[in-house]
C-alpha cells in the first residue's frame, strides 16, 4: 500500500486475546497504517516493517519461535512487546513444562529475554484504543509515558508481588488507589488505606506496577541508572 507506515501484529503463542483486542479497532487502525496480521491474512515475517507488535510470551525451548522472533526484530525498526505475556511474562511465568504432547516446552519469558525491545506494554489484554494512542505518541517522538514503557522493557517480571515488596511493604505507598483500579482480576483491595494483594488472584500481569505513581518513579530512575552503567561499561571497553 502506498506511503502508509507499515505495522506487523504477530503472536508467538499467547492466548490470542491481545491480537483480537487490537483487531477490534482495526477499521481505525487501517485508516492510518498499513496493517499486517494473521487475523487479516497478510502476515509475512520476511518483509520489512516500521513497527512490529509482538504478543504472547517466548518459549525458550522452541527454536522455531525464537528464530521467528529474531527475524522480526531484524526486519522491523521499532519492536513493541504488547500485552502482559510479551512484556513481563504474565501468567505464563508459572509454566513448568512436562505437558503432553510437548513436555519439552518448559520455560517461558518476556520477549525482551531474546531480543532488544523498544517499548513494553503490560495489560491482559490492553484495551483496543491503546495501540493507536501508543503509536501516535511514538511517531511524534514524545508522549507522557514513553520513558516508562521503555523502562519496563528492562524487566523480566513485574507483578502485584513486586508492588507489595517495593512500594507497600517499604512504606512509600501513598494510598491513592490507582493500583486497585488497575487490576484485571481484582487481586488488590484497600485495607485501612493501603492496598493488599490477594495472592491467589494475581496473574502477574504487571498493570498495577506501571500505574502506581511511586513504582513508575522507581522503574524509570532505575532504568536511567542502568543505562548510565551500560554506557560507562562500553566506554571502558566492556559489553
Amino acid at each position: 500500500m502506498s506511503g502508509k507506515t507499515s505495522i506487523l501484529i504477530y503472536d508467538l503463542g499467547g492466548c490470542e486475546g491481545c491480537p483480537l483486542s487490537i483487531m477490534r479497532s482495526y477499521p481505525r487502525l487501517a485508516r492510518i497504517y498499513d496493517v499486517h496480521a494473521k487475523c487479516i491474512g497478510n502476515a509475512d515475517i520476511e518483509r520489512q516493517y516500521n513497527y512490529a507488535i509482538i504478543t504472547g510470551p517466548i518459549c525458550l525451548n522452541s527454536q522455531r519461535h525464537i528464530e521467528e522472533l529474531k527475524k522480526i526484530r531484524k526486519n522491523s525498526k521499532i519492536l513493541i512487546a504488547y500485552g502482559s505475556c510479551a512484556s513481563v511474562g504474565g501468567i505464563i511465568l508459572y509454566a513448568r513444562g512436562g505437558q503432553e504432547p510437548r513436555p519439552d516446552h518448559r520455560v517461558y519469558a518476556p520477549i525482551s529475554k531474546i531480543v532488544r525491545v523498544d517499548f513494553s506494554i503490560p495489560g491482559c489484554p490492553p484495551a483496543p484504543q491503546m495501540l493507536i494512542s501508543l503509536l501516535g505518541c511514538i511517531r511524534s517522538g514524545r508522549g507522557y509515558f514513553l520513558d516508562l514503557f521503555k523502562a519496563v522493557s528492562a524487566y523480566s517480571k513485574l507483578s502485584g508481588f513486586d508492588l507489595m515488596d517495593e512500594v507497600v511493604l517499604t512504606g512509600i505507598c501513598v494510598g491513592c488507589g490507582a493500583c486497585v483500579l488497575s487490576c484485571p482480576t481484582n487481586a488488590l483491595h484497600m485495607v485501612d488505606g493501603r492496598p493488599d494483594l490477594i495472592v491467589e488472584k494475581c496473574i502477574r500481569c504487571g498493570t498495577c506496577t506501571v500505574r502506581c505513581p511511586r513504582f513508575t518513579q522507581i522503574l524509570i530512575q532505575r532504568y536511567k541508572l542502568r543505562e548510565r552503567a551500560k554506557m560507562l561499561a562500553s566506554l571502558v571497553g566492556g559489553e
Binding site: 491482559c124 489484554p125 501508543l134 509515558f145 491513592c176 488497575s182 498493570t207
Partner: peptide, 13 residues
C-alpha cells in the same frame, strides 16, 4: 498522573 495514564494508555479493557 494515574488518570492521565488511563486516558492516554488504557491498559485495561
Amino acid at each position: 498522573q494515574f488518570l492521565r495514564q488511563m486516558k492516554m494508555f488504557p491498559l485495561m479493557e
